[in-house]
Design a protein around this nucleic acid. Structure first.
Lengths: 188, 188
DNA sequence: AATAATGGAATGAACGTTCATTCCGGATTT
DNA sequence: AAATCCGGAATGAACGTTCATTCCATTATT
């Protein structure tokens, strides 16, 4: 049953960090949510900051894997974009807490260097993908970062709305949004 | 000199809340930044939570005023959209701390009912504006909330990039982004 | 001189973290 | 097979620290 607790603590922390933020979440809160003693957390994590960084890197890795998994390497760019878009949406819906946690934590003062560079590596994956389309002349004459703002920014905001029920993620709506984002970045 | 301090405390709090979040900012930190004694803060604000809520409402009001000011009521919808887009950008650049603070705080657990409804009122302004364009058949068959996710989500993400220097907000880039957003929401 | 405003020391509550103790499943002895 | 022992996992009370808030001697205003 051992490594189960490690997982339970991370899961509890993720839920609370997503809801209340890092500083708004106390270690005893995490312990209660994970149904362990407060001291137990320190058997698995050196301290609160190491815990949040480990959680962050795990979430980013899972996020990146979601995007890479089944990536249509052989298909055309339009298809690749669709894949990334829908995987971003899927992750934000299947792991809303992780998604919210990642986005709330990206620029946090308590992230260590490894966490920051892990996240950069992830964004590079998206950026490389976009640059490819730009070189092929399929995308507008804008910096890749601008495309990221449009696509990632849109999905980030959408996920908030899906979470709080402001918007219902029907297949039709998602298809419309995918097209909107594509139209926003594609040339002509 | 009296009411100056009220303003200084709010300004200091805004800066720190934007940088470190509500729970990561201590009252003595705010006092030091505002160059007042810690106790002085409690002459102007009942407690930390009342302070953050007052700051939030003030920021939202200022934000809303920025959008409404000079709104081209008589011009066509395309022009109105351009106005809102550029004002959103302008606010995020001229008041980056306020913009960041608002977005980081919208869903926070410490917001009171008045703050929440103030923000809703602000979003309604944007939503009404979008609904108008939708009724005129200028926008796609998507919920207004979807347009908000695209436009506001994009601008929110952009502002992060402008702040940390990832992207340089040239007139050309902004014009390109405005067109991207318009293309993402406009029909056909 | 009286009154109000101020800063920062004082305070108690709550924090992250530690540690002496308890718990418990498996090995060892009877 | 029953009783005992064992070691690491788990615990939560307790520690020093830091927090939000209060208090009050001093300063500024009237």
């Amino acid at each position: 049953m051992a490594e189960n607790k490690h997982e339970m603590i991370l899961k509890a922390a993720q839920k609370l960090f997503a809801e209340r933020g890092y500083d708004g979440t106390t270690v005893p809160m995490i312990a209660e949510e994970a149904k362990v003693g407060a001291g137990t957390i320190y058997r698995y994590f050196e301290n609160k900051q190491k815990l949040v960084n480990e959680l962050f890197r795990g979430s980013v890795a899972q996020f990146a894997a979601t995007l890479r998994d089944g990536f249509p390497e052989e298909k055309d760019f339009r298809e690749k974009f669709r894949h990334v878009f829908y995987r971003l949406i899927r992750y934000s819906r299947e792991q809303p807490e992780a998604f919210r946690f990642i986005n709330a934590t990206v620029n946090a003062y308590f992230l260590d260097e490894q966490s920051k560079s892990d996240f950069e590596g992830f964004m590079d994956f998206i950026e490389r993908h976009l640059d490819e389309g730009k070189e092929a002349g399929l995308l507008r004459a804008l910096p890749a970062q601008a495309f990221i703002a449009i696509v990632y920014g849109t999905i980030f905001h959408l996920s908030r709305m899906f979470e709080d029920g402001t918007l219902e993620p029907s297949d039709e709506l998602l298809a419309g949004l995918e097209k909107s984002c594509w139209d926003a970045i594609s040339a002509d």
